[in-house]
Design a protein around this nucleic acid. Structure first.
Lengths: 227, 227
DNA sequence: GCGGCGCGTTGAGGTGAATCAAGGCCGGTC
DNA sequence: GACCGGCCTTGATTCACCTCAACGCGCCGC
């Protein structure tokens, strides 16, 4: 089985992990594939495993008792799907299109992390950056208009995608409108209308499974805070 | 100077810190007082110090370029005012009423934390619980009506206060209406009106600097998700 | 006492997003 | 190709919250 450079969560690819540790992680990890729409884990499940995303996109979300849904984040290759410690999942995760994950048995991963202060430190930094993302998103949902939310989302998504593929004006959007809506605290019709308005103003062009930036106003997408 | 049990962040009061470590922390800490409205630190500042809150209430917030504000959280006695690592503050903090904080020089605290795997582990758990709070709040701002937000806020606030004082039907609210509004992504008039409506329905009674729960519907306040 | 100010409340009217409801497009399968 | 279903778009209307504006109240200094 070929293992690409993004097989492991990027957390484990920093300076803190030497060859011996990578070998240890490789021993722990099991690769798994999921098809689009399949659930990787659900809110409330006992976290027997931790998951790193090797390929594809995963939506992380919570369901409210009345059926409303809040998408917490979209995970990309290299991301952890949850905090590796913690004994239950606090949100659900399912595949947006086909994905590959690597699964770590929780107890052994926990032992590995706690035996290694350098990794613990990275984990703290990881948590801190997740926290900041959540606070950015909080600020966006608390203050932004529909258009501000959508523009910030596109900007952040583009920036994150840029780490995984050559930059281009074209932004792939593998998730559904409904997912974007639940992420931004809007309704799917509003997403659709806002996209349409941005297209009329020549900011974007809507293409199947994505948008293309057309305007000279890429600056507008640069300074997003959210996600 | 008398040091109450809540002088230190509760993070350091768990099993991970023995007498020697508490002595070390005591050596590092400097107590400081702030009056209501004073700023403890500002977003973007180099984080030369870390702060634990010993007494009082602090609002943590971000300012947007156009003057809008998002209150990230209200800190209570025992809370850290930010992640102790990280070299710049990602939000501002100022006192709501008079507060006492203890200040730790950042480099020395960092050294203390990193020398102590047990404390690092606690710090990871702290970060994980902050993250979960942020995600709760995200869910609330993404899905809740004005009334749901206010009710969830009251419920969470009450639950947090319960750790610091004898439980009672009376909920002190030392912060201004504007602070609550900026926390919940609403306008202060909406907070005022929503309080008034809850009072008309005999859920609460509005008193100076707080509310009193009157209805038999305390259950309603129990199952909040946000904050 | 008087006036000023910060904060909270209340009212009237406007508006952005939600809601309700068609219809269109595209990718399946038979 | 014809049908179907999921997804997306678009339109008309409604409604929750915002905006703007006035007023009340408690607290302060003078």
């Amino acid at each position: 089985m070929p293992r690409t450079s993004s097989f492991f969560p990027t957390l484990f690819c920093g300076e803190a992990c030497d060859a011996r540790e990578v070998a240890e992680l490789t021993r722990l990890a099991t690769p798994i594939r999921f098809d689009g729409g399949q659930t990787i884990f659900s809110e409330g499940d006992v976290a027997r495993s931790a998951f790193g995303l090797s390929q594809g996109v995963v939506r992380l979300y919570r369901l409210l008792p009345d059926g409303r849904r809040q998408v917490i984040a979209f995970a990309l290759a290299g991301d952890f799907l949850a905090m590796p410690l913690g004994d239950r999942f606090t949100f659900s995760a399912d595949a947006v299109g086909a994905v590959s994950v690597c699964r770590f048995p929780r107890e052994e991963l926990k032992r590995f992390i706690q035996a290694n202060p350098g990794v613990m430190r990275l984990l703290i930094e990881f948590a801190a950056s997740e926290l900041q993302s959540a606070q950015d998103q909080l600020t966006l949902l608390g203050n932004g208009s529909a258009e501000e939310r959508v523009v910030a989302f596109l900007g952040n998504w583009r920036r994150r995608m840029a780490r995984l593929m050559p930059v281009s004006q074209s932004i792939p959007l593998p998730m559904r409108r409904q997912d974007i809506a639940d992420f931004l605290g809007l309704k799917l019709e509003t997403i659709s209308r806002t996209f349409a308005r941005l297209e009329q103003r020549n900011v974007i062009r809507i293409v199947p499974h994505g948008v293309v930036l057309t305007g000279p106003e890429h600056v507008e997408l640069a300074a997003g805070s959210g996600e």
